[in-house]
Simulated assay, not measured.
Amino acid sequence: MAKMNLLQAINSALDLAMAKNDKVSIFGEDVGHFGGVFRATSGLQEKYGRDRCFNTPLVEQGIIGFANGLAAQGSFPVAEIQFGDYIFPAFDQIVNETAKFRYRSGNEFNVGGLTIRTPYGGGIHGGHYHSQSPEAYFAHTPGLKIVIPRNPYEAKGLLLSSIFDPNPVLFLEPKRMYRAAVGEVPEEEYTIPLGKADVMKEGSDITLVGWGAQMEIIEKAAELAEKDGVSCEIIDLRSILPWDKDTVAESVRKTGRLVISQEAPHTNAFGSEVAATVQEMAFLYLESPIMRVSGLDTPYPLAHEKEYMADHLKTYEAIKRSLNY
Protein backbone atom coordinates (compact mmCIF):
# COMPACT_ATOMS: atom_id res chain seq x y z
CA MET A 1 0.00 0.00 0.00
CA ALA A 2 1.11 3.56 -0.64
CA LYS A 3 -0.30 7.02 0.08
CA MET A 4 -1.58 8.45 -3.19
CA ASN A 5 -3.71 11.35 -4.23
CA LEU A 6 -6.26 10.83 -7.00
CA LEU A 7 -3.86 11.98 -9.74
CA GLN A 8 -1.14 9.62 -8.56
CA ALA A 9 -3.62 6.73 -8.45
CA ILE A 10 -4.65 7.42 -12.04
CA ASN A 11 -1.01 7.65 -13.12
CA SER A 12 -0.31 4.33 -11.36
CA ALA A 13 -3.22 2.65 -13.16
CA LEU A 14 -2.03 3.93 -16.53
CA ASP A 15 1.52 2.80 -15.79
CA LEU A 16 0.39 -0.72 -14.86
CA ALA A 17 -1.88 -0.98 -17.90
CA MET A 18 0.92 0.09 -20.26
CA ALA A 19 3.33 -2.37 -18.65
CA LYS A 20 0.78 -5.17 -18.90
CA ASN A 21 -0.12 -4.75 -22.57
CA ASP A 22 1.95 -3.02 -25.24
CA LYS A 23 -1.25 -2.20 -27.15
CA VAL A 24 -2.22 0.33 -24.47
CA SER A 25 -1.39 3.87 -25.61
CA ILE A 26 -2.19 7.31 -24.20
CA PHE A 27 -2.69 10.49 -26.17
CA GLY A 28 -4.30 13.91 -25.91
CA GLU A 29 -3.44 17.57 -25.63
CA ASP A 30 -0.09 18.03 -23.84
CA VAL A 31 -0.12 14.53 -22.31
CA GLY A 32 3.38 13.65 -23.53
CA HIS A 33 6.48 15.10 -21.87
CA PHE A 34 4.37 17.79 -20.14
CA GLY A 35 2.14 15.16 -18.49
CA GLY A 36 -1.13 16.91 -19.27
CA VAL A 37 -2.53 20.08 -17.72
CA PHE A 38 -2.99 18.27 -14.37
CA ARG A 39 0.14 16.06 -14.75
CA ALA A 40 -1.87 12.82 -14.73
CA THR A 41 0.42 11.24 -17.35
CA SER A 42 3.73 12.49 -15.95
CA GLY A 43 6.67 10.18 -16.63
CA LEU A 44 4.83 7.83 -18.97
CA GLN A 45 6.35 9.11 -22.20
CA GLU A 46 9.83 8.81 -20.73
CA LYS A 47 9.08 5.24 -19.62
CA TYR A 48 7.18 3.92 -22.65
CA GLY A 49 8.29 6.15 -25.49
CA ARG A 50 6.73 8.64 -27.87
CA ASP A 51 4.89 5.94 -29.81
CA ARG A 52 2.74 5.05 -26.81
CA CYS A 53 2.32 8.38 -24.99
CA PHE A 54 2.10 11.41 -27.23
CA ASN A 55 0.56 14.82 -27.84
CA THR A 56 -2.24 15.43 -30.31
CA PRO A 57 -3.38 18.57 -32.11
CA LEU A 58 -5.99 20.69 -30.30
CA VAL A 59 -8.93 18.97 -31.99
CA GLU A 60 -11.19 16.84 -29.80
CA GLN A 61 -13.13 15.34 -32.71
CA GLY A 62 -9.83 14.22 -34.20
CA ILE A 63 -8.62 12.72 -30.92
CA ILE A 64 -11.69 10.49 -30.61
CA GLY A 65 -11.85 9.74 -34.33
CA PHE A 66 -8.24 8.55 -34.20
CA ALA A 67 -8.98 6.59 -31.01
CA ASN A 68 -11.94 4.85 -32.65
CA GLY A 69 -9.76 3.73 -35.53
CA LEU A 70 -7.01 2.51 -33.24
CA ALA A 71 -9.46 0.60 -31.03
CA ALA A 72 -11.11 -0.96 -34.08
CA GLN A 73 -7.74 -2.55 -34.88
CA GLY A 74 -7.55 -4.26 -31.48
CA SER A 75 -5.58 -1.69 -29.50
CA PHE A 76 -6.43 -0.21 -26.10
CA PRO A 77 -6.23 3.55 -26.61
CA VAL A 78 -6.70 5.84 -23.61
CA ALA A 79 -7.72 9.20 -25.07
CA GLU A 80 -7.60 12.24 -22.82
CA ILE A 81 -9.92 15.19 -23.34
CA GLN A 82 -8.27 17.99 -21.39
CA PHE A 83 -11.50 19.24 -19.76
CA GLY A 84 -14.96 17.71 -19.78
CA ASP A 85 -16.27 21.06 -21.00
CA TYR A 86 -14.35 20.55 -24.26
CA ILE A 87 -15.65 17.08 -25.03
CA PHE A 88 -18.56 18.44 -27.07
CA PRO A 89 -16.69 18.86 -30.38
CA ALA A 90 -16.19 15.07 -30.11
CA PHE A 91 -19.85 14.42 -29.25
CA ASP A 92 -20.65 13.11 -32.73
CA GLN A 93 -17.69 10.73 -32.72
CA ILE A 94 -18.56 9.37 -29.26
CA VAL A 95 -22.33 9.09 -29.70
CA ASN A 96 -22.60 8.13 -33.38
CA GLU A 97 -19.37 6.19 -33.87
CA THR A 98 -17.88 4.91 -30.60
CA ALA A 99 -21.16 3.83 -29.03
CA LYS A 100 -22.65 2.29 -32.21
CA PHE A 101 -19.57 0.69 -33.77
CA ARG A 102 -20.31 -2.86 -32.60
CA TYR A 103 -24.05 -2.61 -33.25
CA ARG A 104 -23.87 -1.26 -36.80
CA SER A 105 -21.26 -3.83 -37.85
CA GLY A 106 -23.25 -6.75 -36.47
CA ASN A 107 -20.40 -7.44 -34.03
CA GLU A 108 -17.94 -7.80 -36.89
CA PHE A 109 -15.99 -4.80 -35.53
CA ASN A 110 -15.92 -3.03 -32.20
CA VAL A 111 -14.05 -0.28 -30.35
CA GLY A 112 -14.42 -1.92 -26.95
CA GLY A 113 -10.79 -1.24 -26.07
CA LEU A 114 -11.32 2.53 -26.03
CA THR A 115 -11.25 4.51 -22.79
CA ILE A 116 -11.87 8.27 -22.78
CA ARG A 117 -10.52 10.09 -19.73
CA THR A 118 -11.59 13.61 -18.88
CA PRO A 119 -11.73 15.81 -15.76
CA TYR A 120 -15.17 17.15 -14.88
CA GLY A 121 -16.89 19.32 -12.28
CA GLY A 122 -16.43 22.54 -10.38
CA GLY A 123 -15.04 23.71 -7.08
CA ILE A 124 -11.76 25.03 -8.51
CA HIS A 125 -12.93 28.54 -9.52
CA GLY A 126 -12.66 27.58 -13.17
CA GLY A 127 -15.70 29.48 -14.43
CA HIS A 128 -18.23 28.29 -16.94
CA TYR A 129 -15.79 26.63 -19.38
CA HIS A 130 -13.84 24.55 -16.85
CA SER A 131 -16.46 23.41 -14.34
CA GLN A 132 -19.26 21.54 -16.08
CA SER A 133 -20.58 18.04 -15.33
CA PRO A 134 -21.58 16.56 -18.71
CA GLU A 135 -22.38 12.99 -17.67
CA ALA A 136 -26.12 13.14 -18.38
CA TYR A 137 -25.55 14.01 -22.07
CA PHE A 138 -23.75 10.70 -22.55
CA ALA A 139 -25.91 8.58 -20.22
CA HIS A 140 -28.59 8.72 -22.95
CA THR A 141 -26.31 6.70 -25.25
CA PRO A 142 -26.59 2.89 -25.45
CA GLY A 143 -23.21 1.31 -26.18
CA LEU A 144 -21.16 3.37 -23.73
CA LYS A 145 -20.15 2.82 -20.14
CA ILE A 146 -19.72 5.85 -17.87
CA VAL A 147 -17.58 5.59 -14.76
CA ILE A 148 -16.93 8.25 -12.08
CA PRO A 149 -14.60 7.54 -9.13
CA ARG A 150 -14.77 9.31 -5.77
CA ASN A 151 -11.28 8.77 -4.33
CA PRO A 152 -7.79 7.44 -5.20
CA TYR A 153 -8.50 3.79 -4.35
CA GLU A 154 -11.66 3.77 -6.44
CA ALA A 155 -10.00 5.67 -9.29
CA LYS A 156 -7.17 3.17 -9.76
CA GLY A 157 -9.34 0.05 -9.57
CA LEU A 158 -12.10 1.46 -11.78
CA LEU A 159 -9.66 2.81 -14.38
CA LEU A 160 -7.88 -0.54 -14.71
CA SER A 161 -11.29 -2.20 -15.15
CA SER A 162 -12.28 0.42 -17.73
CA ILE A 163 -9.14 0.09 -19.88
CA PHE A 164 -9.59 -3.66 -20.32
CA ASP A 165 -13.40 -3.74 -20.33
CA PRO A 166 -14.81 -5.07 -23.64
CA ASN A 167 -16.88 -1.89 -24.08
CA PRO A 168 -15.91 1.75 -24.69
CA VAL A 169 -15.79 3.65 -21.41
CA LEU A 170 -16.09 7.35 -20.63
CA PHE A 171 -14.08 7.84 -17.43
CA LEU A 172 -14.92 11.12 -15.70
CA GLU A 173 -12.39 12.30 -13.12
CA PRO A 174 -13.49 14.80 -10.42
CA LYS A 175 -10.84 17.47 -10.85
CA ARG A 176 -11.65 19.11 -7.50
CA MET A 177 -10.44 15.90 -5.84
CA TYR A 178 -7.25 15.46 -7.89
CA ARG A 179 -4.94 16.64 -5.12
CA ALA A 180 -7.47 17.05 -2.31
CA ALA A 181 -8.27 13.32 -2.00
CA VAL A 182 -5.46 11.20 -0.50
CA GLY A 183 -5.70 7.60 0.64
CA GLU A 184 -4.06 4.19 0.91
CA VAL A 185 -3.85 2.55 -2.51
CA PRO A 186 -2.31 -0.83 -3.42
CA GLU A 187 0.75 -0.43 -5.62
CA GLU A 188 -0.07 -3.59 -7.56
CA GLU A 189 -2.87 -4.13 -10.08
CA TYR A 190 -6.43 -4.60 -8.82
CA THR A 191 -9.86 -4.03 -10.35
CA ILE A 192 -13.28 -2.85 -9.20
CA PRO A 193 -16.30 -4.15 -11.15
CA LEU A 194 -18.08 -1.65 -13.39
CA GLY A 195 -21.80 -1.13 -12.95
CA LYS A 196 -21.82 -2.11 -9.26
CA ALA A 197 -22.63 0.55 -6.66
CA ASP A 198 -20.79 0.76 -3.35
CA VAL A 199 -22.80 0.93 -0.13
CA MET A 200 -20.31 3.13 1.72
CA LYS A 201 -22.31 3.22 4.94
CA GLU A 202 -25.40 1.35 6.06
CA GLY A 203 -28.30 3.16 7.67
CA SER A 204 -31.99 2.81 8.41
CA ASP A 205 -33.71 6.21 8.07
CA ILE A 206 -32.80 7.62 4.65
CA THR A 207 -30.79 6.70 1.54
CA LEU A 208 -28.30 9.21 0.12
CA VAL A 209 -27.08 8.60 -3.45
CA GLY A 210 -24.42 10.33 -5.52
CA TRP A 211 -21.23 9.83 -7.53
CA GLY A 212 -17.76 11.31 -7.92
CA ALA A 213 -16.77 14.38 -5.90
CA GLN A 214 -20.31 14.67 -4.56
CA MET A 215 -19.69 11.72 -2.24
CA GLU A 216 -17.52 13.86 0.03
CA ILE A 217 -20.36 16.40 0.24
CA ILE A 218 -22.89 13.67 0.98
CA GLU A 219 -20.71 12.32 3.80
CA LYS A 220 -20.52 15.79 5.37
CA ALA A 221 -24.31 16.16 5.12
CA ALA A 222 -24.77 12.74 6.71
CA GLU A 223 -22.54 13.76 9.63
CA LEU A 224 -24.80 16.75 10.28
CA ALA A 225 -27.93 14.60 10.03
CA GLU A 226 -26.52 11.99 12.37
CA LYS A 227 -26.06 14.67 15.04
CA ASP A 228 -29.87 14.94 14.84
CA GLY A 229 -30.17 11.19 15.36
CA VAL A 230 -30.74 10.34 11.70
CA SER A 231 -29.28 7.07 10.40
CA CYS A 232 -28.12 7.60 6.79
CA GLU A 233 -27.35 4.92 4.24
CA ILE A 234 -24.80 6.24 1.71
CA ILE A 235 -24.44 4.80 -1.80
CA ASP A 236 -21.84 5.72 -4.41
CA LEU A 237 -23.12 4.68 -7.84
CA ARG A 238 -19.52 4.56 -9.23
CA SER A 239 -20.97 3.89 -12.71
CA ILE A 240 -23.93 5.75 -14.12
CA LEU A 241 -24.09 3.71 -17.32
CA PRO A 242 -24.97 1.04 -16.48
CA TRP A 243 -26.10 2.05 -13.00
CA ASP A 244 -26.89 -0.29 -10.14
CA LYS A 245 -30.61 0.33 -9.79
CA ASP A 246 -31.18 -2.86 -7.77
CA THR A 247 -28.86 -1.79 -4.95
CA VAL A 248 -30.47 1.65 -4.75
CA ALA A 249 -34.03 0.30 -4.86
CA GLU A 250 -33.23 -2.30 -2.21
CA SER A 251 -31.91 0.44 0.06
CA VAL A 252 -34.97 2.64 -0.47
CA ARG A 253 -37.27 -0.28 0.33
CA LYS A 254 -35.47 -0.43 3.68
CA THR A 255 -35.27 3.29 4.50
CA GLY A 256 -38.37 4.64 2.72
CA ARG A 257 -36.60 7.86 1.75
CA LEU A 258 -34.14 8.98 -0.93
CA VAL A 259 -32.00 12.07 -1.49
CA ILE A 260 -29.92 12.28 -4.69
CA SER A 261 -27.10 14.84 -4.59
CA GLN A 262 -25.43 15.84 -7.87
CA GLU A 263 -23.28 18.66 -9.16
CA ALA A 264 -24.87 19.10 -12.60
CA PRO A 265 -27.75 21.53 -13.33
CA HIS A 266 -31.12 20.35 -12.01
CA THR A 267 -33.15 19.82 -15.17
CA ASN A 268 -32.54 16.44 -16.84
CA ALA A 269 -29.50 15.67 -14.68
CA PHE A 270 -28.84 11.97 -14.14
CA GLY A 271 -30.49 12.16 -10.74
CA SER A 272 -33.80 12.51 -12.59
CA GLU A 273 -33.29 9.03 -14.05
CA VAL A 274 -32.47 7.64 -10.61
CA ALA A 275 -35.59 9.22 -9.14
CA ALA A 276 -37.88 7.95 -11.92
CA THR A 277 -36.52 4.42 -11.73
CA VAL A 278 -36.71 4.20 -7.94
CA GLN A 279 -40.34 5.28 -7.88
CA GLU A 280 -41.08 2.54 -10.44
CA MET A 281 -39.27 -0.09 -8.37
CA ALA A 282 -40.10 1.02 -4.81
CA PHE A 283 -43.11 3.37 -4.96
CA LEU A 284 -45.12 1.71 -2.19
CA TYR A 285 -42.14 1.85 0.17
CA LEU A 286 -41.63 5.63 -0.11
CA GLU A 287 -42.49 7.67 2.98
CA SER A 288 -41.82 11.02 1.27
CA PRO A 289 -41.09 12.40 -2.22
CA ILE A 290 -37.64 11.71 -3.64
CA MET A 291 -35.43 14.78 -3.18
CA ARG A 292 -32.89 16.00 -5.76
CA VAL A 293 -30.09 18.37 -4.79
CA SER A 294 -28.36 19.87 -7.84
CA GLY A 295 -26.52 22.77 -9.35
CA LEU A 296 -28.63 25.60 -10.74
CA ASP A 297 -30.14 25.78 -14.22
CA THR A 298 -27.65 28.44 -15.28
CA PRO A 299 -24.20 28.44 -16.87
CA TYR A 300 -21.63 27.65 -14.21
CA PRO A 301 -20.83 31.01 -12.54
CA LEU A 302 -17.37 32.13 -11.50
CA ALA A 303 -18.24 34.82 -8.94
CA HIS A 304 -21.15 32.87 -7.45
CA GLU A 305 -19.66 29.36 -7.49
CA LYS A 306 -20.35 28.83 -3.79
CA GLU A 307 -24.03 29.68 -4.24
CA TYR A 308 -24.26 27.43 -7.30
CA MET A 309 -22.68 24.32 -5.80
CA ALA A 310 -24.84 21.52 -4.40
CA ASP A 311 -22.99 21.62 -1.08
CA HIS A 312 -23.40 19.66 2.16
CA LEU A 313 -25.76 22.25 3.65
CA LYS A 314 -28.18 21.99 0.72
CA THR A 315 -28.03 18.21 0.98
CA TYR A 316 -28.61 18.38 4.74
CA GLU A 317 -31.65 20.62 4.16
CA ALA A 318 -33.01 18.05 1.69
CA ILE A 319 -32.57 15.31 4.28
CA LYS A 320 -34.56 17.36 6.80
CA ARG A 321 -37.32 18.09 4.27
CA SER A 322 -37.63 14.40 3.49
CA LEU A 323 -37.81 13.39 7.15
CA ASN A 324 -40.28 16.15 8.06
CA TYR A 325 -42.60 15.57 5.10
Rank of each mutant, 00 (worst) to 15 (best):
A139F: 06
L296V: 12
Y178I: 12
R50I: 03
F76R: 06
V209Q: 10
L286S: 13
L14T: 01
Y316A: 15
K23E: 05
G195P: 04
L313C: 07
A282T: 12
S294A: 15
I206A: 11
D297E: 14
N167G: 03
T56Q: 04
V111D: 01
H304T: 15
G143C: 10
E273S: 07
L44Y: 04
E317S: 15
T141F: 03
Y308N: 15
H312Y: 14
P142F: 04
V209M: 12
T41K: 02
N96I: 13
G203V: 11
E135H: 05
A136Q: 05
L302F: 15
P186S: 08
V274Q: 06
P57D: 09
Y325T: 14
P186M: 04
L170A: 07
G84I: 13
T207Y: 08
T267M: 14
R117Q: 05
Q279A: 05
G195T: 08
Q93G: 11
E187V: 02
P242L: 09
G271W: 03
P152G: 09
G212L: 13
I10W: 05
D30P: 02
E305G: 09
G84K: 10
S161Q: 10
P142N: 09
S42M: 04
S231N: 08
N151D: 15
E273K: 10
G84T: 11
M200R: 15
L241E: 05
G113A: 03
Q214C: 07
A139G: 02
M200W: 08
S12V: 00
L286M: 14
A67Y: 06
S162A: 15
P301I: 13
Y137E: 02
Y285G: 08
S12I: 00
L58P: 09
T191Q: 10
E188V: 01
T115W: 03
L16E: 02
G74F: 11
G210D: 14
L58I: 14
K196P: 00
D236Q: 06
T56C: 04
D311T: 08
V31S: 07
L194G: 06
A9F: 09
N21H: 00
G49R: 01
E154Y: 01
S75C: 14
L159F: 10
P166N: 13
E187T: 13
K196V: 15
D236W: 05
E188Q: 06
I234M: 09
S322E: 12
D92P: 13
V248D: 08
A155D: 08
K201C: 12
E187F: 02
Q262N: 11
H33A: 10
F283A: 15
S288G: 11
T115P: 11
N167H: 11
N110E: 03
E250I: 00
A99K: 04
M4N: 04
G106Q: 09
A269Q: 10
I192K: 03
I63N: 06
D244I: 05
S162P: 01
I234R: 07
G126I: 08
V259M: 01
M215H: 11
G183N: 11
M281E: 14
A221Y: 11
K314D: 07
L16Y: 03
V24I: 04
M18Q: 04
G49A: 00
V259I: 06
A72E: 10
I81C: 11
A13C: 05
N68T: 12
L237H: 03
E29V: 02
A13K: 05
Y316V: 13
E219A: 12
M18F: 02
K227L: 12
H140P: 06
D85F: 09
F27S: 01
A90I: 12
V230R: 12
F76N: 12
Q45H: 00
A139W: 07
